[in-house]
Amino acid sequence: MPALAAGCASCHQPALHGVPSLAGQPIDALLAKLRGFRDGTRGGTVMPALAKGYTRDELEALARHFARQRPAG
């Protein structure tokens, strides 16, 4: 797991679903959500603020990583 994605793993665990699991989600859907949070077009609780802390390239790299991650449990 790359260092940047490890930052997300504090809340997003592949085998747990209370916080949405990102593992294996389609990359387009994931990236649309992250970009929406960042651009302010998508609502939420913590993610609208957190997504603004990452560059567009970083969000793309994160989406790519989690799309490839194998869902567990």
């Binding site: 793993a9 504090s10 809340c11 997003h12 665990q13 747990l16 916080v19 609780t45």
Partner: peptide, 20 residues
Amino acid sequence: ALEGDYGFAWARAIWQDMLG
């Protein structure tokens, strides 16, 4: 209550991230 649910879910997730 939604944030309460997320709060409990946060705990389960981070404990997994530390100790799982």
